[in-house]
Nucleic acid binder design. Sequence first.
DNA 1: GTCTATACGCGGATAGAC
DNA 2: GTCTATCCGCGTATAGAC
Lengths: 194, 194
Amino acid sequence: MGAAEPIAGLRSGPYTAPQARIIAAAVELFSDHGVSGTSLQMIADTIGVTKAAVYHQFKTKDEIVLAAAEAELARLEAALDAAGAEPSRTRTREVLVTHIVDLAVQRRHAVSVILSDPVIIPFFSQHEPFRRVLDRLNRLLMGDDAGSAGRLATTMLMAAISGAVMHPLFADLDNDTLRPELLHLARRFLDLPG
Amino acid sequence: MGAAEPIAGLRSGPYTAPQARIIAAAVELFSDHGVSGTSLQMIADTIGVTKAAVYHQFKTKDEIVLAAAEAELARLEAALDAAGAEPSRTRTREVLVTHIVDLAVQRRHAVSVILSDPVIIPFFSQHEPFRRVLDRLNRLLMGDDAGSAGRLATTMLMAAISGAVMHPLFADLDNDTLRPELLHLARRFLDLPG
DNA sequence: GTCTATACGCGGATAGAC
DNA sequence: GTCTATCCGCGTATAGAC
């Protein structure tokens, strides 16, 4: 089964030590200032090197953004793995939506790294590994036979969850209040009881 | 009643002719290249003037973005007006969700102007007129007594709808196919029949 | 009032020396 | 691998022509 295997091209590694330092600094800065609000200079200053040194590790800023986004995407893959191991389809959907909500709440700020930037979205929709993750997510949620209607529902659910956790109007809502309400509404969208 | 009155500060006008030309060009360019992907130079070139001439009409790029976003937001207000005139609360919700879906599908690309840019979202959450539109939307959808749970549901619904119409994976889905499916899922989220 | 000319500082990006 | 130096385009800003 390919279910438990990492998707080709979606490497969380292998990165060299300098690359890993850059990614770590980037994720932190992207979360605080947004992608476009973070300059290579800021990343360079954070790890104490020059802008050109950063450039030697990653040819473009987009590559850094992509690496940071892939790190977040890998968490979603882990949720797919866990849900796929459940015995029934109902259980799969229940576990999956719960994990996704948990993940979204837990990584609240970082969700914007992968979803809120205009650079990433068009890029990822051309990105084979990303599409395969979405396909797998869609199959687990909606079943193998769901067509464009199923994909639309999956897209809406993901947009709804990430839109909610990212929204500034709920920035001061603490995780323990947000999570159950979010889960309840997500389950209702999926026609799950509760 | 303030329901039918335009919200103070949310002017679609009055703009001078040069300003209106800039806004029109900006909306077009933002839709095609995104906000941060659109430079003042591109706007200037489109209407055949210099960058400084654009800068003379609007002191910052953010002001242009705001004006473009307000033009889109005014369309949402019109939907609120229409829905608010319905006799029953059920009818209000039905008409409102239908108009919002229609608007989102019809203005597919432009939705990103108001919702997808990292610059706009934090800015608008501080923007009084915008908050009042959101409050009014929330009351019409969820009722006067709905607290943070109602606001969360409203946020999720709007994020789901706009996320769906903006998603590149559905860019090739034509409007007449997208609209009914979107409406169906949105209604289900609101516990409306059908 | 509307525009042009010009400039500053910062952004991403590149070339070549150590 | 990291540096210095440099490039061009960006948003921003001002002075002044018509």
